[in-house]
Design a protein around this nucleic acid. Structure first.
Lengths: 240, 240
DNA sequence: CATGGTCATCCTGTATACAGCTTGATTTTA
DNA sequence: TAAAATCAAGCTGTATACAGGATGACCATG
């Protein structure tokens, strides 16, 4: 339990626009929402953190009202719980819900390739090549789990772009953001070398399927990887 | 396009608590949210209706602030679109998104029986027997499509209770509320007798599977019924 | 008559004061 | 001392005034 005012984690490289003065209303909402979502997802606000409306309102130079709107969206997504008189608390996930979510994500990943598949473009291939290259470049810099998490986020973004069915894409993203931080919390226990190796293997599998323009296989590989993650998580979380 | 102040549809039997004076905060939110969701779903507010914060605030005897929170949740669910300076507009669905949603719902219905199935209790059977009986009782009262829609809503509620996987249940419900009103809009074009007959057949299929404690078959039947709905919808919507 | 500008009038967005709730420290009491 | 009551300080929830955007009616102008 931490007050977000005290929890100034070294948010190095918060990759969002630095608050342009001429941004319109919805743009500001998206910027703040994305910033808070990423802080939660990337563990700058670990589960249990108490967020304060007034503190964040001060940080972003606005009043409580727009911050509350962002909080409500985060609550709908399941990332925080708003409790009257207490604060807005970053949620944790119990083991049962975590397993149910991964079971579902596995099946949705398979559907990704079956429902209105999209054509894979050279741009898509370039993006996954980038991810592979950056992961390899990251390997010697041992322990930068934050950078690794950002790469994993970008892989999810790429897979989203490969999901032709709009509602399915939306739901896959929603479930990803619900549980990604649990995986990120676990990564250090896996160890740097294993984490990097697993990640490169996953990226290479998916790249191979993409090169064959075989989205169905992309989904199948993703499903297998999710199963592997769930297995790793269960082993650690059930026997601490 | 209608102003909700003028659009006082005969909301006979709005089956919600009649605003008890001692209800706590979250209870009031749920009551108002449920009321507006049902009005949208049951076509008291058809697509294109413009909802006004002040009008609804007056109706429920509160200020704009809680109404705005409800609107934001409805927007997150995809039932309304909030437009600055204009109003909050009940959304319509384009044919492409409708098809994508039904394709996804079909697959999710199958998953219902596969992911952590629940035990079927006599209470569940009693509920579907109720639905069958009420539908039969409704048959002679030709043209009460609103009552039929409420029965369809309750079937969805029953199927939700048969979905053991929590996140899956949540998503199935979300997608149901997104497109149910489109089906309800279409029902009168199908004709009363066909609508009733289809509905009774669907209920009987599902009841049979439930009696065998076979949730997998429940999901399969539901999937087939969704396909049938999509076919009916496509036939009408693509050739007006 | 056609057309462009102006403005009145709705709406939602924002800021802010105040009310109500929660919690833990403090004080009182058995 | 231990336990119960009290209260202060923080938080979110609500109401409301005001700012800003969208739209259609109206009117001036070619």
């Amino acid at each position: 339990m931490q007050i977000n005012g005290e929890c100034r984690v070294s948010r190095t490289a918060e990759e969002t626009t630095p608050s342009p003065e001429d941004e319109t209303g919805p743009a500001r909402f998206d910027r703040i929402f994305g910033a808070l979502r990423d802080r939660i997802c990337l563990l700058a606000y670990p589960p249990g953190t108490v967020l304060s409306e007034v503190a964040l309102a001060r940080e972003f130079g606005i009043s409580r009202t727009p911050i509350r709107r962002v909080f409500h969206k985060l609550e709908f997504m399941g990332l925080v719980q708003i409790r009257n008189g207490v604060g807005t608390i970053v949620t944790d996930i119990d083991l049962k819900t975590l397993k149910e979510t991964y079971d579902l994500r596995k099946r949705l990943a398979e559907l990704m390739g079956e429902l209105s598949p999209v054509e894979i473009t050279p741009d898509h291939l370039a993006r996954i090549d980038d991810l592979i290259a950056e992961t390899r470049a990251l390997a010697p810099i041992r322990g930068d789990y934050d950078a690794l998490a950002r790469i994993i986020n970008r892989l999810q973004g790429l897979l989203s772009d490969l999901t032709g069915n709009g509602p399915l894409r939306e739901i896959i993203e929603l479930l990803y953001y619900r549980v990604a931080r649990i995986w990120f919390t676990f990564l250090p226990q896996l160890g740097w070398d294993d984490a990097i190796e697993n990640q490169i293997n996953e990226l290479r599998e998916i790249r191979t399927a993409m090169a064959n323009n075989d989205i169905r296989s992309v989904g199948q590989y993703r499903s297998i990887d999710l199963q592997r993650m769930l297995t790793s998580l269960s082993r650690v979380l059930s026997e601490p």
